[in-house]
Structures are given as structure tokens and as C-alpha cells.
């Protein structure tokens, strides 16, 4: 059986809020190392990959592999009841029909209990090749969100170019062109504002802004975001959750027709 208690319960809500517009039904795959999720969007352009490691929970117990087939719209309805400092506990049998979710207020004077019906989801797992990315950019997540949102107002697509001079996000639309360039930036006092660009070779790739803006719904999870690029392979956008738990998004590029 599964029993997993999360003190940073808002993490669960933020993860679900970040992915529910991209994927609807997905398996939460539980085993002794933690709770994982991998799901592609309907158009097979983007992929969500989440891992909440066992260390993120206290206690965490899962004796065997359990797949929790969850409709995220339904889970969102349950998570509406979650309040800021609540502890959340997830419980399920080995072959569960439902997921038991308990919220406890930090003062332990309120316990809310929900059973969410589960579904059988036949989901293919994709092998994601280990990639040495040509460019890795770590930057404030709010900045990334602003750039994507601003450029989406002008165009459907953005070209991301990483060179030794910086990282340039540019777009061309009916009303004209726009571009934002970021350079390496170090702020010793406010490290969360740093822009770190690691480059082994120049990269230029084009992506749909609709998906990137969607990924930015994960912004509340972390004040930093990591963007990994290599020519002619999918983009990786990563938000670290707590410790080494993560939420990753992959996006296939657009290529010249």
C-alpha cells in the first residue's frame, strides 16, 4: 500500500495547477523511490515529467509499484479544499479503486478526508535519452514567464538563440518583430536573480509560445527555472520542487517546412 505525507502540501497543488491544462488523465506511478508522473499532451508535442522523491515525504511508504490513474480536473476539485499550512496525506491500496486524501490543519483541529475515484489509464512510457545539452540557462522563473507571455502577444513562435553573447528570445508577427536578450548576470546578494548561461556550442531553435506559456504555470513552484537546449532536439524546461524533486517539461521544436 501507499502512504505518503507531505508537509509542504502546496507543492502538490502547484504541480497539479502547472500541468492540468497540458494533460488531463495521467498515472501517478508510486514505488519505493517516490511518486513519478510522465504524460504527453494530446497533440504529442509536449511532455510532462515529474518526480516527487520519497525524501520529500515524511513518512513515505510504498511496498510495491502502484499506478494511480487520476483525472486532474477531479483532483483539482479535491485540492480546492487544501489550505495553506495543511499537511496532506495520500493513501491507496495495492490495487486501488480510489485514492484517499487527507488534509490536516497545522494546529490539528481540522481533518478533511476525501476519496477520489481512480481510473485505468493505459499510458505508454517514453524513453527520454540522456542528453548533453549544448546550452543550459538558469534564470529567474518570473523573467522567463514574462518573456514568453510578452512575446506571445506578438507571435505564435519564438526563436531561442544561445551564443557566447547571451540568450536571445525573438519573434516575428503580423504587427512586427520583438526580441529580448539576456546576458550572464551575477548578483551576490540576490542569487535568485542570477542569469547563468553555460554554452558548449551555439544553439538556435524555434518553439511554439503557446506551450512555453503553459509550462510557465509552474512558476509558483520555484523562483528559478532551467532551460536546456541542443540543436534539433526537444527543449527541456525544469523547475526544481523540494530537494531534488522536479517538474520537467519537454517541447519538440519547429523546423523549416
Amino acid at each position: 500500500m501507499l502512504e505518503a505525507r507531505l508537509s509542504q502540501s502546496m507543492v502538490l497543488k502547484k504541480v497539479v495547477d502547472a500541468i492540468k491544462d497540458l494533460v488531463q488523465d495521467c498515472n501517478f506511478d508510486c514505488n519505493d523511490s517516490g511518486i513519478a508522473l510522465q504524460a504527453m499532451d494530446n497533440s504529442h508535442v509536449a511532455l510532462v515529467s515529474m518526480l516527487l522523491k520519497a525524501e520529500s515525504f515524511e513518512p513515505y511508504r510504498c511496498d510495491r509499484n502502484i499506478a494511480l490513474g487520476v483525472n486532474l480536473v477531479s483532483l483539482t476539485k479535491v485540492l480546492r479544499a487544501l489550505q495553506n499550512d495543511d499537511l496532506v496525506t495520500l493513501k491507496a491500496d495495492d490495487a486501488p479503486d480510489s485514492l484517499n486524501i487527507t488534509f490536516e490543519s497545522s494546529t490539528a483541529d481540522r481533518i478533511s478526508e476525501y476519496d477520489l475515484k481512480l481510473m485505468d489509464i493505459d499510458q505508454e512510457h517514453l524513453g527520454i535519452p540522456d542528453t548533453e545539452y549544448a546550452a543550459t540557462v538558469t534564470m529567474p522563473s518570473t523573467e522567463f514567464k514574462r518573456i514568453c507571455t510578452d512575446l506571445q502577444a506578438m507571435s505564435e513562435s519564438v526563436t531561442i538563440e544561445a551564443t557566447k553573447d547571451g540568450i536571445k528570445f525573438s519573434c516575428a508577427g503580423d504587427i512586427g518583430n520583438g526580441a529580448v536578450t539576456l546576458r550572464n548576470y551575477q548578483n551576490v546578494e540576490k542569487e535568485h536573480l542570477n542569469v547563468d548561461i553555460e554554452l558548449t556550442e551555439p544553439v538556435s531553435l524555434t518553439f511554439s509560445l503557446k506551450y512555453l506559456v503553459n509550462f510557465c504555470k509552474a512558476q509558483p513552484l520555484s523562483d528559478r527555472v532551467k532551460i536546456c537546449l541542443s540543436n534539433e532536439v526537444p527543449l527541456l524546461v525544469e523547475y526544481l520542487i523540494t530537494g531534488t524533486s522536479y517538474l520537467r517539461f519537454y517541447l519538440a521544436p519547429k523546423v523549416r517546412d
Partner: peptide, 14 residues
């Protein structure tokens, strides 16, 4: 114009 690639051409089922 540019054409959207599919992720399945990069990542294959396990």
C-alpha cells in the same frame, strides 16, 4: 513557415 515536430520522433516508447 515552420512545421511543428512531434515528440514521438525524438522519444520512443520504452
Amino acid at each position: 513557415g515552420k512545421k511543428q515536430q512531434s515528440l514521438t520522433s525524438f522519444f520512443t516508447p520504452k
